[in-house]
Design a protein around this nucleic acid. Structure first.
Lengths: 223, 223, 223, 223
DNA sequence: GAGTAACCGAGACGGTACGTCCTGTCTTGGG
DNA sequence: CCCAAGACAGGACGTACCGTCTCGGTTACTC
């Protein structure tokens, strides 16, 4: 199973220093000059790294950015988790669990909980530091199926799974019909938001996401 | 007295022959070798045209492809319309109107009509000749807002408008609640399909789109 | 003998206005931006003339410049001749005839006369308005034999003929040996100056040309 | 601290293989299709080299050709020197030293020696392999002073220095007047030949060069 | 005095080469 | 054997001109 064609590099000797520098440079460049103008040479130069070091460990600029962005997300998640913990320690309360990567709150009111996390998502979509690399990867994924699937599997699907969990909980509570497939159901309010963001098909606001939740839960037909 | 900087070319002298050749070459190359490997140089060579002729009339590879695809769509629409006409003349019937760019059928059964057109869309999304340029433009639009908006305005929005019309008709017929905004409502079943296509977040089948219509019309909550 | 291949243009209908404008533009551009950066398009634009008007009457940028320069020389010669005439009318004297294109002075002192005209040539070679187009044509002529020969026949040889005349006169006066070929003899002092100018092989000064005349007349060997 | 603007390339890493291929291609193209039709792209293609490799080390087509021609001259000189050596070894004689780049022969008869080398030069000027690049460089030098001076310093002046040496020797032998400046004197017979070659002002023959030597040594005036 | 055949200005066209930028591979020297 | 550095073959970029062509317009000669 080991021993591929051009002999795989020995990852135990890999320079952690270089990897970090490459991630940082890649993200910074995409934010500053945009994905199309970001080049492997540019990343290498900014990271103070030889080009070969990039070509040794990654297959394309998109892969570099994907890993860099995954790394960034993990960092952000860790930071957020820590802050939450500290806050809770300080405030000695539980309350609204809050951050979605930590799970969707379950107050018993499904509509309210969904509106809450979707509003948080709206905020995130408007964050410029998140937008540039995220769009770049999404765009690349549209045209490059392999990378697209990895992007989805690593970043998007885990998020969607949280909705699945919350919907299942709602099903158990009798707030969602039992014959509904949660994985499909979530798309009724998540996908519209996604499409508006991806394709500029409409404005992205709190009232819009609130409306989506209402429409999805109650349906379009008269009751 | 009108005297801009790079002096816009005189469009009355434009060669129709070249434009056609460029459109054809652009589409053909994107289908054959993919968008990233399609180059302006390659389009020019294939079209038997000087590069400058492309740079004179378009600002980027993406703009060429956008116009080429728009042109293709118009042609296809014209062809389809003609065929439909001929068929109807021959068969002397009206029946199911059929092609979505001609409007969504209105049999009085909203669910059935929506399922019908969505199934047609599923077929279209699986058509390779349509997929390559379409994905390329969508991807470019994700990262290039200006182009994205044009893509949507010229191609996507007119399609969506057909759903708006059908939903309004359903509202008049009492099959959709009057307080529903059709432009948002249609996203409940269109956007999930779009996202699955754009991001490979799930399989695209007839049963899937049928399910979307059912969920959207009836809602997730118990009735 | 008439009736060439692509049908020769009718020169009776030629626009004198355009010709003048083209000559002026060509000379001006060569002086301002240099011969290599001077283009036919540039000449046409500056002259306010269609490109075809240039291609109709000339075969290359070099030919345009050659004619433009010939025209300029004639103008200059006419102007100089007129000035001389006016001066002489005013001063009512004959004296030193002066301008070489009017013939080399013949005071009876061959060495002095040659030194005089060569000094005038030195001045001319240092005149920037003359230098740019002149060098351009010379350079073109080095590599393009046909044009080179025309350049020589039209511009250089007439000048050299004046030396031939003066040397013949000197031969009759017994100041030059009768077996000497004047056409070759003149090269002894003219060519060194020409080469220094063409190839930057040495400085061009009055004392240099004076020395050339002395060496050529008296020879290198001890007398 | 050394840190210029475009950062000069590291010449120790330079590919000797590429340099040779570029020299060969440049010379071959100039001979085959002429200097104006020789392009950097063409040289690169013929040499099997990337364009950038040319632009990295040279500033223009003319510079490439200059170095290529210098290299060619050195090679030719080395080859000639070696052949001469072998011939002398074989023949065990000294005699007429022969090749001008090895110095001008000094038999004691200045006129004969000069006529001999000038005849050799006449032959060289008629050699097509030498003529094409040589004319191209000369022409470029006429219009481009910097390059012209380099052309002269590297190729022409060393040749002329040989005449200076021979003339000095003749001065010591009393065959040339001591007040004569050899650097100027040589121009009396070298420059006419040069001008005829550069500007097609007359035929280039043995009798012509012989005549030049006679005129120059004895002068034009009666003795 | 209408017809018409050229020149003219303008500039689009199919091409070619420019000089720059980046790709992905390879080589060198240092750790 | 990794790494920084960067030269290399290759190829696309977007620009500038080439020489040809087509378009109206404007003369100037013909019938």
């Amino acid at each position: 199973m080991a021993s591929n064609n051009p002999a795989p590099p020995d990852s135990t000797r890999r320079s952690e220093r270089s990897r970090r520098a490459i991630y940082d440079a890649a993200i910074a460049l995409v934010v500053e000059i945009g994905y199309p103008k970001t080049t492997i040479e540019g990343i290498a130069a900014r990271a103070g790294v030889g080009k070969q070091t990039i070509y040794r460990w990654w297959g394309s600029k998109a892969e570099v950015l994907l890993e860099a962005f995954l790394d960034l997300s993990e960092q952000a998640a860790r930071t957020a988790a820590q802050e939450r913990e500290e806050r809770e320690d300080r405030e000695g309360q539980e309350g609204r669990a809050g951050h979605e990567s930590q799970g969707i709150p379950d107050t018993g009111d499904l509509a309210a909980d969904l509106k809450f996390v979707l509003r948080a998502t709206v905020d995130e979509l408007h964050d410029p530091a998140f937008e540039a690399p995220s769009r770049a990867l999404a765009a690349e994924g549209v045209v490059n199926e392999e990378l697209g699937r990895r992007f989805v599997a690593k970043l998007l699907e885990p998020q969607l799974q949280l909705y699945v969990d919350r919907l299942r909980s709602a099903q158990e509570a009798g707030q969602v019909r039992p014959d509904i497939d949660p994985r499909i159901a979530l798309e009724l309010f998540v996908s519209p938001l996604a499409q508006r963001w991806l394709q500029y098909t409409g404005p992205i606001t709190y009232t819009y996401t609130d409306t989506l939740v209402d429409y999805a839960l109650n349906g379009l037909a008269p009751r």
